[in-house]
Computed example of a mutant assay.
Amino acid sequence: MPSSLIDLLKKTHHAEWEATPSWHDATAWLDDLIHFLFPSNNLPKKTSYEGILKKNQIDLENILLSYLDPKKIAIEQKVASFYDELETIYKNLRLDASKIHEYDPAATSVNEVIVSYPGFYAIAVYRIANNLSILQIPVLPRILTEYAHGKTGVDIHPEATIGVPFMIDHGTGIVIGATSVIGKNVSIYQGVTLGALQVAKELYNTKRHPTVGDNVIIYARTTILGGDTVIGENSVIGGSVFLTKSVAANSQVFNTHQLRITTRGEG
Results as ranks from 00 to 15, higher is better:
Ser66Cys: 07
Ala107Ser: 13
Pro39Lys: 08
Leu64Ile: 02
Gly213Trp: 03
Gly227Met: 02
Leu53Gly: 08
Pro158Ser: 04
Ala26Tyr: 03
Val253Cys: 05
Lys151Thr: 03
Trp17Thr: 13
Ser81Thr: 13
Asn255Lys: 00
Ala220Cys: 12
Lys151Ile: 10
His35Gly: 00
Lys201Leu: 10
Glu76Leu: 12
Ser4Leu: 12
Gly177Met: 03
Leu93Thr: 06
Ser4Ala: 11
Val79Cys: 05
Pro2Thr: 14
His35Met: 10
Leu135Arg: 02
Trp29Thr: 03
Glu159Gln: 14
Asn131Glu: 13
Ile231Pro: 00
Ala26Ser: 15
Val241Met: 11
Pro118Asn: 10
Asp25Lys: 06
Gly171Gln: 07
Tyr121Trp: 09
Thr262Tyr: 12
Gly226Ile: 07
Lys207Ser: 05
Phe254Met: 13
Val113Glu: 02
His35Trp: 10
Ala178Arg: 10
Glu61Leu: 08
Thr88His: 12
Gln77Ser: 15
Tyr83Ile: 04
Gly150Phe: 06
Ala196Cys: 02
Pro39Tyr: 09
Ser235Thr: 09
Leu194Gly: 00
His101Glu: 08
Lys55Tyr: 07
Thr20Leu: 05
Phe38Trp: 02
Leu30Pro: 01
Ser240Phe: 11
Lys201Tyr: 07
Gly195Asn: 03
Leu225Asn: 05
Leu43Arg: 13
Gly153Thr: 08
Val125Gly: 02
Leu132Tyr: 05
Lys45Met: 09
Asp32His: 13
Val125Ile: 07
Gln198Ile: 14
Asp169Lys: 04
Asp84Phe: 08
Ala124Gly: 03
Met167Thr: 02
